[in-house]
Design a binder for these strands. Structure first.
Length: 1169
RNA sequence: GGGCCUGUAGCUCAGUUGGUUAGAGCGUUCGCCUGAUAAGCGAGAGGUCAGAGGUUCGAAUCCUCUCAGGCCCA
């Protein structure tokens, strides 16, 4: 071992490690000179134990004092504010009390990190050739950090810390998402601007200035909270999506796509708020007023009453009409087609009263008739919808009638089209189509190559193409349109209709759906490549990648990446005002400056207010001026560009960015599957033909304790900073990291859950650490760097072996990014360490000097526990960065090599095969099973553990197991407080056997006969089964080819009546509970020991205080006191001769108390001597 | 409306080729142990595996439908 070698060389004749020797050893470590050099030549700098308060107190008076620190640590100058105290040349472990306040400890560790520059050094000290690329998905700083961010941050900290300790150079740069609707909304609210027109009135410059002012509103809160959480991330060199360099890279990305022919202009039907004069995002639509449907009781859009109009369209090729239904009369001027479902049956009827001939769907006709809207009819013909497709009809209104004139022999509009979406649950089964005003209409229009006409402005007013209603607001025009149609005899029926309908979340007016010009990136043609690239990505959990994300990629649609907004990266497209087909896509500041005849240095900001005014003359259209189109980017485009833009690629860092694609690791929430994960993948595939990241951990959503979303108004979650202050970051981290969220499942956050982890993880770990340091102090043991010997004591060998198993497991699972499998292994080890190793080893540590030669057992116990805790502190460091820092600093400082300035600068421990002993782990497991059974038997038969019992018998059929158990006898005997432990093979005298068929094995073979086999197996006699257990077999009486043996049967054991026996996993334990007078008295003596120990504790005595005991009792208790005084005195560190039981003791005195033991009274008093 | 996910003890969750009596932790009751421990150990109580139907010798597990919740898309 590394440390052993160093220690051997570095120890001086007096046994004290020599620091200079150790330093020399370190200086040629493989980590390169940078970090080493900063340590300086002074031995005293070896282990600056900085400002850990507890420690500082312990070290007062040692080394150069406060204020003398003038060296540099981690390349950062130390200021005089930072109090540095150096360790003495060689020192003992600091004794640590079991009482601890983790949040305070964490604050001290945070200060130490600042002082030592540990974070930067954890990067700098790793070679550049070992680069490990991590991308940070940027959050908005318009809100404060909450638990969802905590989860992502914990993952984004654990993984990079781990790989840094594994020798990787992991840059961790923070990112801020600065653009997007949430920011604009927030600003509009602040400025009291309701509509887009209000923004125009104010001016983009002022508006954008206001946006800039608020996007970083909470950055200080973020920095503070993320720091407090223990996440190491570089804010100083982070990126902001609003930086000109970042935006310029986004331009480059777009221009590359443009050059590759991946960008096109198209239309898309979007919800528009006429009052705001702007399209809304789906997110904003969802914010609109909600209402519960009175029938279905479901929450949905607010309901409103609209006209319900049935209109007749006259066919051109027949004296008949098509009846169509609409709730939006204002779209009728824009009608261009009628849609039928080709698979539905339609009917042609003559209305008896009027003689009119009409087509519609028969069940709908019946509905009209039932409501008395249409009189009696005579059926003329039945025909499928497909038979109507293509038939021309006369334009209902004249405004766009030119589209009825054939172009190149084809009629552009005003004919019947087929559409699968047409249903027969309402209307007439024939649907009026205005392609500009509905998603379905638009799609049908596209499928049939219909023209797109839109006579409405964004504020919903008719323009001059519809002169009859010019200037009228669409909804207001409904009445006039209906009147006109009535006049010309086109109305079949007029009614009203109540339905849920989306309304504007800001103004409350009903939204209009209309086709808006937008810019698309062609993604559909990339589908196969996207899917192929995704297959190279390791998803955790895997199902997200193959399922949700994979499906999404396979069905990817062209990406609408423009937004009609103000505060974002402008689309770099300049278009000729004379010839709209002439466009220039600008890919850099330099290019734009040249086009506009200005200096590049004048382009310091690329936001709309700075560049919208920049124009240049057209090259191909005389007199034309090139002006920028008004749209900005979907801010997801910026997030997806972040791998390039954060480095200002390709304008700077070209080679390093290209060398480091794709990223090694990213982590975000499940909600990002179609957000960041998607945009990263699309852009990386389009630009570089490869995936954007190799490994990704997807975390689930954090819900409130009540299972609902966390909501400020409901107040259903505790303040995040409060939890950190009360319980600490380590506990919060381990709570989150060991919860279902790290496997993409939802977590109901509860502070009590965090508290649980303080109790079940933090405190046991701390107590193990405290145990070692306190006894080491009492004993004067100092860490000597000598490797523990696994052969001295089975317990040491066992815990060392378990540690190696743990390290291998962690390595394998971290390589697979399966944190949900790492944490339980770590926690399981802590449990083994504290509740078995230390529990069983306690006595080894308090063996007194006069107990004689222990063959080095105590020394090895110290070395083992110290070694294990030190390794554990490193192994847990990525997960619990604070407590491990404290432990490591104390545990490593006295070693010949000293401690590094931070555990996070250490190398991650690697499993040492020399310590692995599978046989030992197996037989220890047997021992623990036997002990568990024995304790259960004691409880069942009401014999407490303090009562010694004459013997127990462990029965094991397997010879290897018996041999293993023989070596565990001391441990089992001691733990169970029995005088003798016997191991034997034959369990016949203790148990009876019964058997069940092994269905997994027999099921597939015997199928339907299983019922019979079950009955037969259950009927097998215990004596016969004994032969099976011994390796024999019994042929089945009724089933051919079936033989009962130890494979085909599962044999159960039951203890025989009247015995004290239990059995589990093939281990049978029998307890002899015969009590003799002698054993009873000895048991009482142990009762006395416990009572006196408790008194010691209550009285606040130190571990090694010697005491004087006085007692008042009679009967068996007095016998026990006298007979076993030597034992008692040894256990409780009592001095002097046996106290006289007949003395009188004042139970109310300090250190005194009266007890009742099995009905006998005793008063005891302890006093320090 | 569509895609994906979740629903198992009071709570948080395990439960993979379908296999017998469905587990763990927390909480709870009783008992035990304790020179580190706020910890630990043993026993008990606690389950229509969301519901219905199907496949099968056998279903928490596979299939279909329904209900409730979540994320995303429309």
């Amino acid at each position: 071992m590394h440390r052993v070698a160093l220690a051997a060389q570095a120890s001086s004749p007096d046994g004290r490690p020599r620091r200079t020797g150790a330093l020399a050893g370190r200086a040629c470590s493989p980590h390169g000179p940078r970090g080493r050099a900063s340590r300086g030549p002074l031995g005293a700098l070896r282990a600056p134990r900085w400002a850990l308060g507890v420690l500082a107190d312990a070290l007062d008076g040692f080394g150069p004092g406060r204020g003398q620190a003038r060296a540099q640590v981690g390349g950062r100058p130390l200021t005089s504010r930072q109090s540095f105290r150096y360790p003495p040349p060689a020192m003992k472990l600091k004794a640590v009390q079991p009482e601890v306040h983790f949040p305070a400890l964490e604050e001290r560790v945070l200060q130490s990190w600042d002082a030592t520059g540990a974070f930067q050094r954890s990067i700098d000290e790793r070679p550049e050739s070992e680069s490990y690329v991590f991308y940070d998905g940027p959050p908005f700083a318009t809100g404060k950090p909450h638990y969802g961010h905590f989860v992502a941050s914990v993952l984004k900290d654990i993984v990079p810390r781990y790989w840094a300790m594994k020798g990787k150079r992991v840059e961790r740069r923070w990112g801020w998402d600065c653009h997007g609707l949430p920011v604009e909304n927030e600003t509009q609210k602040d400025l009291g601007l309701v509509s887009k027109a209000d923004v125009d009135k104010l001016g983009i410059e002022k508006f954008n200035e206001a946006c800039r002012g608020i996007v970083l509103r909470y950055t200080e809160e973020w920095k503070g909270t993320i720091r407090r959480l223990g996440r190491w991330v570089d804010h100083d060199r982070g990126y902001k999506t609003m930086d000109a360099d970042f935006m310029e890279s986004v331009w480059w990305v777009f221009s590359k796509l443009w050059q590759d022919g991946r960008i096109y202009e198209g239309y898309r039907v979007q919800p528009v708020s006429p009052a705001l004069g702007t399209p809304l995002s789906n997110f904003e639509v969802a914010l609109g007023p909600q209402e519960r449907d009175p029938v279905t009781k479901k929450e949905g859009h607010k309901r409103r009453q609209d006209p319900s109009l049935t209109v007749r369209f006259a066919l051109e090729d027949e004296e008949a009409s098509l009846w169509a239904w609409t709730t939006t009369p204002w779209t009728l001027p824009s009608n261009l087609a009628l849609a039928v479902n080709p698979g539905t049956e339609y009917v042609k009827v003559r209305v008896v009263e009027t003689g009119e001939v009409a087509y519609l769907e028969p069940s709908r006709l019946a509905d009209y008739q039932a409501r008395g809207r249409v009189g009696e009819t005579e059926e003329l013909e039945r025909l499928p919808g497909s038979a109507l497709v293509g038939r021309p009809y006369r334009p209902l209104l004249p405004y766009f009638k030119e589209h009825a004139e054939p172009v190149n022999g084809k009629r552009p509009a005003f004919y019947v089209v087929a559409a699968e979406y047409v249903e027969t649950t309402s209307g007439t089964g024939i649907v009026h189509q205005a392609p500009a005003f509905g998603e379905d209409d638009f799609q049908t229009g596209k499928d049939n190559d219909l023209p797109l006409v839109n006579p409405l402005s964004l504020t919903g007013h008719f323009d001059a193409t519809v002169p009859d209603f010019e200037g009228q607001f669409a909804k207001d025009a409904d009445k006039a349109i209906m009147a006109k149609l009535k006049d010309q005899g086109s109305v079949v029926d007029q009614d009203t209709f109540v339905h849920p309908y989306p309304h504007c979340y800001r103004t409350g007016v009903p939204l209009l759906y209309m086709a808006i010009s937008t810019w698309f990136m062609k993604v559909e043609e990339l589908r196969d490549q996207l899917v192929a690239n995704n297959e190279q990505t390791h998803w955790v959990p895997q199902a997200v990648g193959t399922g949700r994300f994979g499906n999404w990629l396979a069905a990817a649609r062209d990406w609408n990446l423009s937004r009609n907004r103000f505060w974002g990266t402008p689309l770099p497209i300049w278009r000729c005002d004379e010839n709209p087909d002439e466009m220039v896509c600008v890919g850099s500041r330099k290019e734009l400056a040249e086009l506009c005849g200005m200096a590049e240095s004048e382009l310091v900001d690329l936001h709309r207010d700075k560049i919208d005014g920049l124009t240049f003359p057209s090259k191909s259209t005389p007199g034309g001026t090139m002006r920028r189109i008004p749209e900005v980017f979907d801010c997801w485009f910026e997030s997806g560009s972040m791998p390039y833009a954060e480095h200002h690629y390709p304008f700077e860092n070209k080679a390093s960015v290209e060398a480091n694609l794709p990223a090694e690791f990213i982590a975000e929430g499940l909600d990002q599957t179609r957000g960041w994960f998607y945009t990263l993948t699309v852009l990386s595939t389009a630009l570089f033909g490869r995936p954007a990241f190799k490994n990704v951990i997807v975390n689930g959503m954090v819900l409130a304790e009540d299972g609902a979303k966390m909501s400020k108004s409901k107040q259903n979650f505790p303040d995040p900073n409060g939890v950190l202050e009360r319980l600490g970051a380590d506990a919060l981290r381990i709570y989150l990291a060991s919860s279902p969220v790290v496997n993409a499942k939802p977590l109901r956050f509860s502070e009590a859950g965090v508290q649980d982890h303080v109790r079940s993880v933090m405190l046991p770990l701390w107590n193990a650490y405290s145990f070692l340091t306190r006894y080491a102090n009492v004993d004067g043991w100092e860490p000597d760097g000598v490797a523990p010997d696994p052969g001295v004591n089975e317990l040491d060998g066992w815990v060392l072996s378990r540690l190696q198993t743990l390290l291998s497991e962690v390595e394998e699972r971290m390589a697979a990014y399966e944190l949900f499998r790492v944490i339980p292994a770590l926690l399981g080890f802590i449990d083994d360490l504290t509740n078995w190793y230390i529990r069983r080893s306690r006595r080894r540590f308090w063996r007194g000097a006069d107990d004689g030669d222990d063959g080095g057992d105590k020394l090895n116990a110290y070395r083992t526990l110290h070694h294990v805790l030190l390794e554990v502190s490193k192994a847990l460091a990525p997960f619990l960065p604070f407590i491990t820092e404290e432990m490591y600093g104390n545990l490593a400082a006295p070693l010949p090599g000293g401690a590094r300035d931070s555990v996070h600068l250490e190398d991650y421990p690697v499993a040492n095969a020399a310590f692995v002993d599978a046989g030992l782990e197996a037989r220890m497991q047997l021992a623990r099973t036997a002990v568990g059974l024995g304790r259960g038997l004691r409880a069942k038969h009401d014999v407490r553990t303090r009562q010694p019992l004459p013997s127990m018998t462990v029965v094991l059929a397997d010879a290897d197991s018996r041999a293993g158990m023989e070596r565990m006898i001391d441990i089992v005997r001691d733990e169970l407080n029995v005088k003798e432990v016997h191991v034997q093979a034959d369990e016949g005298e203790f148990v009876t056997y019964s058997a069940r068929p092994n269905l997994k094995l027999l099921g597939p073979k015997f199928g339907k006969e299983i019922g019979k086999i079950k009955a037969e197996a259950l009927a097998l006699a215990s004596d016969d089964l004994a032969r099976v257990v011994a390796g024999g077999s019994i042929p089945s009486a009724s089933i051919d080819g079936l033989v009962y043996d130890s494979d085909s049967l599962l044999v159960d054991r039951a203890s025989k009546e009247g015995t004290v026996v239990d059995t589990l996993d093939g281990v049978t334990v029998a307890l002899d509970v015969t009590l003799t007078e002698e054993l009873i008295v000895e048991g009482l003596a142990r009762e006395l020991v416990t009572r006196i120990q408790n008194l010691r504790k209550e009285t606040g005595l130190e571990l090694d205080d010697r005491i004087e005991v006085t007692a008042s009792c009679d009967g068996p208790l007095a016998d026990a006191l006298v007979a076993h005084w030597e034992l008692i005195a040894g256990e409780v560190l009592a001095k002097g001769a046996c106290p006289d039981p007949s003395a009188s003791v004042d139970a109310s005195a300090v250190g005194a108390s009266a007890f009742d033991i099995d009905g006998a009274e005793i008063t005891l008093r302890v006093k320090k001597v």
